[in-house]
Design a protein around this nucleic acid. Structure first.
Lengths: 221, 221
DNA sequence: GCATATTTGTCCGTATGTATA
DNA sequence: CTATACATACGGACAAATATG
């Protein structure tokens, strides 16, 4: 396994405290950047040996990542990188429409500076053709929209949701074709939020999310 | 510690598989029913000995419950039963207003039978003066409202939120005085939902949640 | 279909470090 | 400063399920 040998480079980063968390971080990175694509099985023995940690410690890490829905436990068969199906995508976008739209509608008199900041980062990344970063900025922007609700619990839930969504984002073969049209719509939405036209922003956001859902559903089949 | 000796009765239930989960279940019950009131410190040594499991296994259970926000880890000081502060109550009700209201608003053409079922259970419990059950039915009712969104992820998140909220519910010394006035308002809301008057239901629900929040904030100080 | 090897699931005891009383 | 209790990680043991020949 090629991605596994690449893991060896990460061994030295694991020197100090919080072993399980560190291991989880390394694996999370590998999952999100696609080194371990969806449906990959992660062998306890191999990875524990490769990273130089005990099986128990590695299992801790697996549990953390499974809880983020990045990994999936199959009984007596091991852990696998999650592969989202159409039901997952539908549910994720149901939550996004519920939370993001409600958060925008509730944003009367709330500080919206972070929302516009995210847009600036995204446009800059797009100008340099760094479409991976555009995707990251897109997620940041929508997190910022949800954060308008002003609820730490909502923030955490949405962070998890977007981590999960990255599993499909990465399955996209042409990130520019996917992100470019949505960037402009993000800019428009940000403008409406900033101008206090919250109902208009909520409507535009609903449309945006419906279209994005349809696109992703086509990708997932 | 009195509640601890009561634990011994649960030892026999722990015979087979899933030790950590079983232990967690026992402790969860004890926390929710008030045997371990908020701010109680749970000693690893004592409980591990009492239940006849190793410290490591018990720590697994603690982790599960800490993740449900029923327990709280204080570094090198041990685990304690969560005690919600005003910030927690405010945030919880922020989420409830966001999610429940949006779910009700989105319930056009959705099956609402489970909502009315919960109301029937609640009224029946009230007629028999079982106010603890009324509280449980109240939570079920509001879970049913959130479930109108039709999202498994929302359902799970709300289940966790209400488990957390029970920590304060139990701190109430007079459950009848607390639940009785809200029961009628629940009935009214259910009626509006059933009649398809979703905007009216959403408004009544918003008022309900604001009042309940204020009441609980007074209890938590 | 069957026996064996591999892998996971679960739990334990221990060792070491660290913070608190 | 010492004793206690928690935090973390490891390795081992054994059962159970799966994969392999």
């Amino acid at each position: 396994m090629d991605a596994l040998t690449a893991l060896e480079g990460d061994r030295q980063l694991l020197g100090r405290t919080g072993m399980a968390e560190r291991v989880a971080e390394v694996l999370r990175e590998r999952i999100i950047d696609g080194s371990f694509p969806p449906a990959t099985r992660l062998s306890e023995d191999q990875i524990a040996r490769t990273l130089g940690v005990s099986r128990n410690t590695l299992r801790e890490s697996f549990k953390l990542l499974a809880h983020e829905r990045l990994l999936e436990h199959k009984l007596n068969r091991g852990v696998f990188v999650r592969q989202l199906d159409t039901g997952d995508v539908i549910d994720i976008y149901r939550v996004r429409r519920l939370v993001e739209v409600a958060a925008v509608r509730s944003a009367d008199g709330v500080d919206t500076s972070h929302v516009t900041e995210c847009i600036q980062v995204a446009t800059e990344a797009a100008e340099h053709d760094r479409w991976g970063d555009v995707g990251t900025a897109d997620i940041r922007f929508h997190l910022a929209l949800a954060a308008l609700a002003g609820s730490p619990r909502v923030d955490e839930a949405m962070r998890q949701l977007f981590a999960e969504l990255r599993l499909v984002f990465h399955a996209m073969n042409d990130p520019q074709a996917f992100h470019e049209p949505y960037l402009e719509r993000n800019i428009a939405i940000a403008g409406m939020v900033e101008a206090g036209r919250l109902d208009a922003a909520a409507e535009a956001l609903t449309d945006y999310l419906r279209d994005a859902e349809a696109t992703l559903l086509a990708v997932v089949e």
